[in-house]
Design a protein around this nucleic acid. Structure first.
Length: 931
DNA sequence: GTACTCACG
DNA sequence: GACGTACGTGAGTACG
């Protein structure tokens, strides 16, 4: 039967429900995976209540829930500022939107939305059709924009206040009947939707005017008759704006819809579908309520969860237990593994013999299923632990045979349906990967903290535990000792190891429960999911691959350096007239300034003379000795830090050097390379650069290096919107020469290297948060001259100064700055007083630029593995703006092509830079040649 | 453990 | 008006 007299249509303003539910409820999360579901929970409750309340004689015969879709509607075409003042949707709400659609369908209610239209227009069209058909319509909403629809069988119902709004209700609100609501709104405007209206006229005045003149058209036509001069002037001057406002508030009652009223007939919910949805959301209370109403038994939701419970982090903390479980046999282990499978997540931690993942042997594994409930599975503890003298290789009792235990653990660790939660996951993943176990999927509490709290504090387990759990874990030193008497973990008595190791897993799980919902609220879920988490396996593989280093090349260089140093030391002693340690800044300072009486002895804050390279360079004009010390220092540095130390890092098994990247080390998002640091291998001086000749490709392979050209300056040009710089990058011009030309009014064809050098220093200075002092020191020119350069630069590129001012302002207001990809860098010192303020300011200016560049190369690295999967190539190293690969001879060009494409497009699709990213490539048998 | 110096982007 | 400053790292050495 077609919709008509006697039928009653209910239209629910679904989008309004969602926002109301979101703001009314605390940020609840689904227990199993931390998914935010507060708004979904509230939404479901509201829908359920509505259904229950509307049973009886006046029950709806037809119903639908209507949603907004798309942010751009025809109203934006009329007026681009429409709803422009709306805040971005909160990050923890966004993923819930699709779930509200699912919820609607689960209730077997029609779920209506149409691209480019607001829910209001769909509601208007349907309400009008219902009225025309002679039926009734109730709009469940309190949105005043919908009040224009009331009348002729159409009413509204405010679900929160539980009141009906009819003709009378509209008059009470607007002072006019529903047919004139639009006129009043057009005059009064609406600040929440950014509808301008007539300035100075609110609802009260608007209603008076409309009632007096009859309609808006009439009023505007006879505006000159309005007695109040100010009001009259406004109406005459702003007539166009008022007419536009009317178009904006006028709902479209004649939308082309893909469905008719008849298709909205009320259907009973399909019990199974509804309960499936509710259990999937882990809404225990609602599941029970619905089951009771339907007279069936409620399905069991694993892991008791109450959707009305307090948010996780406010829940009472379970105390840390005195002791944990020692898993001694396979039955006990199987039981723990089964519990982890049932739970769907498990916190794990490994104990090993070394901090170096490449050499570390697995000694034990701990698991934690819920706070306070953790176990340790010892696997490699040695007998006679404490008595070194009698230590044997025999394993002590109470341990499952290694292979048997790993055979049971491996399926759990590799199960895609069980989330593994770790602190600094890369470490454990590498140790386990060497045993043939590929741990996935993984969450990392260290990286969660880094994404949220970068810049505030470190992200080690002890720091996090003390700060966020108020609990100091057992220090490792209590087990293995310190210094000379330190032992490896396999020598630790199992009974002691259990409580230490299991506690770490317990702490990790508790941190995860705390952090997971916070990620959404801190708006860094995307950063964590796209820039942190996926990097773990990529870096793990790079580190395990390592880079081949030729020991012979290094040791030859070491010998040469040693001789050179000895020669320099002789000369230095001669000039000083006495023997002293050249490597001691303290002794050197005394020789230079006290004994030889050289000028300009500046003291450090500890009272010692400064003997840095810049000071010695100045002194080199006065005396021969400082120059010799500089030479000595350079050689000494090369020998001790590179040619000697690097040899110690060659892995005896692989013959390669395996660095470790810390993902959460640098505040800006950059990686940091340690043990050894391969991101500071010399290149600037000819002698230092030769160290790179020791980094070689193995037989049949080639090293290929690709690096971003001027990436930070390009990002600055984009962020600050400097048209000239952007154009120069697009045209492939020499950016420093162009800057020089603009600043000093020198045509490009008359550019001298000296002027270009100065411009280059300024460009870099800008990235660092330029100061007259810093530039003066760098260029070795007087301060006022440097300041003059800076003034001229800002005059020429005012956008840069604007960027700096805005960034500092943002930091002061919010306590953090952001990269283009949303990475947050906290700036806790930004409002400090004293000299620290300057530091924090410059760091805040630099962070978005350096950080965005770091994000770009992270994105490239994450995509790189797939992009080169078909090539015989391996990604080995990252040096901030450079990636080093090893590839079979013959495939070099294919690699360059594929890798370049990934790197140049790495910002897309998230960020479409207005400058091109360019990548330079080189190749050769050694890193020196490849660069 | 801290200070200083110096290698890199 | 004086003061003190380029941004981000890791590591080796001296010294208390």
């Amino acid at each position: 039967m077609a919709f008509g007299k006697g039928h009653h249509l209910h239209l629910v303003d679904g989008s309004a429900f969602i926002f109301r539910a979101y703001h009314a409820l605390p940020p609840l999360t689904r227990k199993s995976d931390g998914m935010p579901i507060g708004a979904v929970s509230g939404f479901v409750n509201m829908i359920w209540k509505m259904i229950e309340d509307n049973k009886g004689p006046d029950a709806p015969t037809h119903a639908a829930v209507v949603f907004d879709k798309g942010s751009h509607t025809f109203r934006n075409d009329l007026y681009d500022a429409y709803k422009a003042n709306r805040d971005e949707m909160p990050e923890d709400l966004r993923p819930q939107i699709p779930l509200t659609r699912e919820a609607t369908r689960a209730f077997n209610l029609a779920c209506l939305e149409q691209e480019g239209f607001e829910a209001d227009d769909i509601i208007a069209t349907l309400a009008c059709r219902a009225r025309e058909a002679g039926g009734r319509c109730t709009i469940i909403s309190s949105d005043k924009d919908l009040m224009q629809l009331v009348g002729g069988g159409v009413e509204m119902f405010d679900a929160m206040k539980n009141t009906r709004i009819d003709d009378e209700g509209v008059r009470a609100k607007f002072g006019v009947g529903p047919d004139r609501v639009v006129d009043v709104q057009a005059l009064a405007g609406d600040s929440t939707d950014n509808v301008p209206g007539a300035p100075g006229i609110g609802i009260k005045t608007a209603a008076t005017l409309i009632n007096e003149f009859g309609s808006l058209d009439e009023l505007l036509e006879r505006a000159h008759e309005v007695p109040q001069p100010k009001r009259r002037q406004t109406l005459i001057e702003k007539a166009d704006q008022i007419r536009l406002s009317k178009q904006l508030v006028q709902l479209d009652c004649d939308m082309a819809l893909d469905y008719d009223l008849d298709s909205l007939e009320v259907r009973e919910p399909v019990t199974q579908e509804l309960l499936d949805f509710l259990t999937q959301m882990e809404f225990r209370t609602m599941t029970k309520r619905v089951s009771d109403a339907l007279g069936i038994e409620a399905p069991v939701i694993r892991d008791q969860t109450d959707d009305g419970a307090a948010p996780r982090e406010e829940a009472e903390q379970v105390a840390f237990p005195e002791s944990y479980t020692w898993v001694k046999d396979t039955d006990a282990l199987k039981d723990w593994i089964a519990r982890a499978h049932a739970r769907g997540y498990v916190a794990i931690d490994t104990e090993t013999t070394s901090l170096n993942e490449m050499q570390a042997l697995l000694v034990g594994v701990s698991l934690c299923i819920e706070p306070g409930e953790a176990c340790y599975i010892p696997l490699g503890h040695k007998e006679n632990a404490e008595a070194d003298l009698f230590a044997t290789d025999a394993l002590s009792d109470g341990q499952i045979p290694f292979d048997e235990a790993m055979g049971l653990l491996k399926p759990l660790f590799e199960d895609p349906s069980v989330l593994k939660i770790l602190q600094n996951a890369k470490y454990d993943c590498k140790v386990l990967a060497r045993l043939g176990v590929q741990v996935a999927p993984v969450d990392d509490t260290m990286l969660m903290s880094y994404a949220m709290n970068g810049g505030l504090h470190g992200h080690g387990m002890d720091t996090l535990s003390e700060r966020y759990l108020g609990h100091s874990p057992i220090p490792i030193k209590e087990l293995i000792g310190t210094g000379k008497s330190q032992v490896t973990f396999d020598k630790v008595e199992i009974a002691k190891a259990v409580n230490y190791a299991a506690e770490d897993a317990d702490v990790t799980l508790r941190l995860w429960h705390l952090f997971k919902p916070q990620l959404h609220r801190s708006h860094v879920t995307t950063v964590y999911e796209t820039l942190e988490r996926p990097l773990i396996p990529v870096l793990a593989r790079m580190e395990m691959a390592g880079v081949k280093v030729d020991r012979n090349v290094l040791s030859r260089m070491s010998g040469a350096f040693e001789q050179k140093m000895a020669g320099l030391e002789d000369q230095i002693r001669e000039l000083a007239g006495e023997d002293f340690k050249v490597s001691s800044p303290k002794q050197l300072g005394e020789i230079l300034f006290d004994k030889l009486g050289l000028p300009g002895g500046k003291k450090t804050k500890t009272g010692a003379y400064q003997t840095g390279a810049d000071i010695l360079e100045d002194l080199a004009t006065e005396h021969e000795l400082p120059g010799l010390v500089l030479d000595w220092r350079q050689v000494s540095k090369l020998k001790s830090t590179y040619t000697d130390a690097l040899q110690d890092h060659i892995d005896p098994e692989t013959g390669r050097v395996h660095t470790s990247y810390s993902i959460a080390g640098a505040n800006t998002g950059r990686l940091a390379s340690t043990e050894p640091n391969l991101q500071n291998i010399p290149i600037r001086t000819e002698e230092g650069r030769r160290i790179r000749e020791a980094f070689v490709a193995p037989e049949g392979r080639t090293l290929v290096a690709l690096d971003y050209s001027q990436i930070e300056l390009r990002i600055l040009a984009h962020i600050a919107g400097i048209g000239e710089l952007k154009q120069a990058f697009k045209d492939g011009q020499d950016i420093h020469a162009l800057t020089a030309s603009e600043m000093f009014n020198v045509p490009l064809d008359q550019m001298t290297p000296e002027i270009r050098r100065q411009a280059k220093a300024i460009n870099f200075g800008v990235i660092y948060g330029i100061s007259g002092f810093g530039l003066a020191r760098n260029l070795r020119i007087p301060r006022d001259e440097a300041q003059g350069f800076i003034d001229r630069y800002f005059e020429r590129f005012p956008g840069i100064r604007d960027y700096m001012d805005e960034t500092v302002k943002f930091a002061k207001e919010h306590g953090f700055v952001q990269t283009l990809f949303g990475r947050r860098i906290n700036t806790p010192e930004i409002n400090a007083k004293g000299p620290g303020a300057g530091f924090a300011k410059r760091a805040a200016i630099n962070a978005p630029i350096q950080g965005t560049a770091a994000d770009v190369i992270r994105r490239a690295m994450i995509r790189m593995e797939d992009a080169i999967a078909d090539l015989p190539a391996t990604m080995l190293l990252q040096v901030h703006d450079e990636l080093l690969f090893e590839v079979d001879q013959g495939a070099e060009d294919d690699l360059v092509k594929a890798a370049r494409e990934v790197m140049e497009g790495a910002s897309l699709p998230a960020v479409d830079l207005s400058v091109p990213l360019e990548v330079d490539a080189g190749q050769g048998a050694t890193w020196a040649e490849a660069h």
